[in-house]
Write a protein that binds this DNA or RNA. Structure first.
Length: 271
DNA sequence: GCGCAGGTAGAGT
DNA sequence: ACTCTACCTGCG
């Protein structure tokens, strides 16, 4: 087990921010995170965080996954003191991190996310994992399912994933898998591209529009310049940034600001 | 019963 | 270039 004291890091906020659909919180306050084929359990009291893994796994993977090497304090300090709304949002979600998730997994996840609610997105993803993902032991007698590899989905009929409740998004996911397997979309190559180039490649995919492309760039490629505009963000922009969001001021970290705003709009009114 | 949920493709002006 | 609409599904 690894114990760390972490600033600007809050597992509950990360969990609720809806960037990882395979992160859950138990009633006892334990977090379960599945990333690709890896699983981690973690918990947090104040700034003290416990991660149930060895040092090698933490240093090699989870530390980067949680974006611990990025200084979020510096990002928060960059916020315009005169922007009361953004300060409120950032204070509310100051423990959010932009997770470094896998491109393929984000591609599928955000294809499924469109015109869908978070509860059902999670269920859809668990469904495809249980049917098409590898079943793995969790090391303590239980099992979990890895995220399906493209090869497991590429041979399916376009409507096959309707059985996993994806609805009309089934064909988007199957076609994406085929494009990866055929090499028409190469995650490795796209991973090496600039934000505009990667975005352009993503937009070629059936079912990927601007919003989904930006979510994939932000969560799957860690392009912090990506600023996904969905219904919540659009509403916030109309209410608080009638003259446009100050992208120039937050150049290269707009995506983090987007998450503060998104999380604030999604969660602050609850409770 | 009906509108909506982290939108997008395709058809129509 | 823009606007309009259909689209799976389940929850309030």
């Amino acid at each position: 087990m690894i114990v760390k004291e972490l600033k600007n890091f809050d597992l509950a906020q990360i969990c609720r921010s809806g960037q990882c659909f395979r992160m859950t919180m138990t009633e006892e306050g334990d977090f379960h995170i599945i990333a690709g084929a890896r699983k981690l359990e973690a918990r947090q009291r104040g700034e003290i965080c416990e991660f149930d893994c060895d040092e090698a796994a933490f240093d090699d993977f989870w530390s980067g996954y949680f974006d611990l090497e990025t200084d979020y304090g510096a990002v928060l300090g960059q916020i315009n003191p005169r922007d009361a709304y953004l300060n409120r949002a950032a204070a509310f979600g100051s423990g959010i991190r932009i997770l470094r998730q896998e491109l393929w997994e984000m591609l599928v996840s955000f294809l499924i996310s469109q015109q869908n609610n978070i509860v059902r997105i999670r269920r859809c993803i668990e469904n495809i994992c249980e049917v098409y993902g590898e079943r793995l032991p969790d090391g303590r007698g239980g099992t979990y399912y890895a995220f399906p590899r493209p090869e497991a989905l590429a041979g399916l009929g376009e409507d096959a994933l309707m059985a996993c409740n994806l609805g009309y998004r089934s064909k988007y996911v199957v076609r994406a898998a085929r494009n990866v397997v055929s090499g028409a979309f190469d995650p490795e190559a796209v991973g090496g591209m600039s934000y505009p180039k990667a975005r352009q490649e993503l937009l070629k995919l059936y079912g990927v529009g601007e919003k989904v492309a930006d979510c994939i760039c932000l969560f799957g490629l860690h392009h912090l310049q990506a600023f996904p505009v969905d219904t919540h963000i659009r509403q916030a922009m109309e209410a608080h940034y009638k003259r446009g969001f100050p992208h120039r001021r937050y150049a290269k970290v707009q995506g983090i600001m987007q998450q503060y705003i998104f999380y604030y709009e999604l969660c602050h009114s609850r409770n």
